[in-house]
Nucleic acid binder design. Structure first.
Lengths: 209, 209
DNA sequence: TCCCAATAAGGCAGCCACTGTCAAAAGGCA
DNA sequence: TGCCTTTTGACAGTGGCTGCCTTATTGGGA
């Protein structure tokens, strides 16, 4: 049905799809406002819906869960498949690093501000964090399955994927803990460098080199 | 009731604590039975409580959430602090490997059977998996904070901790996917070996292109 | 042995996340 | 304009989870 969009498939998302996307942004904005003001647990979906001027049912239809209101990212969905071939390359960590660098570089100031708000909420509420980690794990496993469909390497590739998720989420967490003092890519870069070198003896990298 | 443990608690867990632990085991057993029979989503806490002959309120008091009925492990709690000094050693992956090996070796056949049931349920239901991942992440962060309280190494240690969690969970997942054909430690061992070597070019380990 | 504090368990009422269903509305096409 | 597809909203219901209060159960002292 909608998968093979008509003539202007790639560049034209369709009219209704745009309206839906605009509504999602409006709903997420309203949700973040309320969550920051009164806390995630003390805001009912009904209030978010009222603030965004849609019905509660529509909020659930679009987002599926309360946590998704925070972790949803428009750029997140189409980025799955084109990433896969990158990881089949010689240097998968380098590919991920480059993808993250490009991703952050493409963000405008408004996008970055939005991401900060979302990250801050994620690490203030374990339930949201759990949803984010699971989301990242599943996404990484989809990529892993695309890279290595054969069974004997599946474990290795998946462990690598999980490690990447752990590295990126750890970086995001420390970006948040540092109160966003430095650009997020620096944290990701440090985390990924660690993955490359392996963990034989991380204590060697102690205070005085 | 089967409270046959009238013997004085040797290690000082207290009498009531023992009764509570016995009840928790009984409740978890009843929950696993029902979840396996009819699926996690189609079993209400009320039914679990009835099967275990306690009140629903007590189930929540003991476990806090429905997912915890599956992921709870008696051995899980005291194992936090004694693990920390191990990781400060020269070879943290080796320390984890040894801890896991010893942990699995200490399991009796009944324990192993219980773990298989729990793992199978975890990977059949994303919500339970999310709870388990979050639990593992938080535990790993507690250990990480104990190992490296200083701020500048915090990111590195946390990334390492997350990577370990990803490796172990990936191993558990493939243990489950293999239908528990081989001992679980083999999967953990393979996953941890990967962490040691780093991810500079895992494709080099390919079968034969 | 009995009684009394302290703690744990049960019962009850309620909130709210989430879902299925169906009717109303909006948009596209002749 | 009228028909048809898709989308949205309203309603009702399920069940996870919590706070509050009452009722057992336990342990200790007179």
């Amino acid at each position: 049905m909608d998968s093979t969009d008509d003539a202007p498939a790639s560049a034209a998302p369709g009219l209704q799809a745009r309206k839906k996307l605009a509504a999602m942004h409006r709903i997420q904005e309203a949700a973040l406002d309320l969550f920051e003001e009164r806390g995630f647990d003390d805001v009912a979906i009904e209030e978010v819906a009222a603030a965004a001027e849609v019905s509660p049912r529509t909020v659930y239809r679009y987002f599926g869960s309360k946590e998704t209101l925070v972790i949803w990212d428009e750029e997140d969905e189409p980025a799955v498949s084109p990433l896969a071939p990158q990881f089949a390359a010689e240097d998968p960590v380098g590919a991920l690093r480059e993808a993250m660098r490009a991703g952050f570089a493409a963000l405008g100031p408004a996008d970055l501000r939005l991401m900060r708000r979302r990250v801050a909420l994620v690490y203030r509420h374990p339930g949201i964090e759990a949803a984010l980690i699971l989301h990242a794990y599943e996404k990484s496993r989809r990529i892993a399955a695309a890279v290595a469909p054969d069974a004997d390497r599946a474990l290795e590739v998946q462990v690598f994927a999980h490690a990447c998720v752990g590295a990126v989420l750890g970086a995001m967490r420390h970006w948040c803990l540092s109160e966003f003092a430095r650009p997020p890519y620096e944290f990701v870069d440090r985390a990924l460098t660690l993955l490359e070198h392996g963990f034989t003896a991380p204590d060697r990298k102690r205070a005085h080199p």
